[in-house]
Write a protein that binds this DNA or RNA. Structure first.
Lengths: 93, 93
DNA sequence: ACGCCACACTTGCATTTTGCAAGTGTGGCG
DNA sequence: CGCCACACTTGCAAAATGCAAGTGTGGCGT
């Protein structure tokens, strides 16, 4: 499979890149992502599980039953690709 | 909507970026794309229609009932984003 | 001690997207 | 005139996505 195909297998799902983009601003909690992105809660849960399994992000426990999601090194490496896509989207009028 | 969101609304569908990547090598015919990518024919037809409508590619008629698909300026501008994503995918072991 | 609330999910079901397989139309060529 | 390559379309099954409501857990106020 091509390199692009490999990338899309990990972050090609509907909300994956939007979640990662949000996390580029620093660790976020579940509820924050949900409100900021307007993503359905079951999709958010599923994507977070997959992205964690793929090594893109990690959970870091905060107080009691709250935690935050933070990008790993591999997740941060998506910065360039997301920025490039964002620039392209911005050019589209 | 964010710039990334705008981009994904256009090229976020399953085969869209893979099709565009293939077209970065120059204009291709329907059958070529189908064979090279292994994309289902109805999906290919749908994506090509959408990408044309979005101004990413254009049909150019060849002989009789054959035509080729070529990137427009806007399609070519995806080069950086695709390359960045490809690099990221390649780094994933 | 008890109830209540915030938070992070899960569950059940409708809708949309994707995929597979087979069929359609059109023009050129022998 | 029949046949073939090419570019699709169509019908239906499977998977992903979305909506709404429910679950569990820990802290905090009373």
């Amino acid at each position: 499979m091509s390199d692009l195909g490999a990338a899309l297998d990990v972050v090609g799902a509907r909300w994956a890149l939007r979640i990662v983009e949000r996390l580029l601003d620093g660790p976020q909690r579940y509820g924050d992502l949900q409100r900021d992105l307007g993503v359905p809660t079951n999709m958010l849960a599923t994507r977070l599980r997959e992205l964690e399994a793929a090594g893109v992000l990690s959970r870091l426990p905060l107080r009691h039953n709250t935690r935050a999601y933070a990008l790993t090194e591999r997740g941060l490496a998506l910065h360039d690709a997301i920025e490039a896509l964002g620039r392209w989207g911005a050019e589209g009028t």
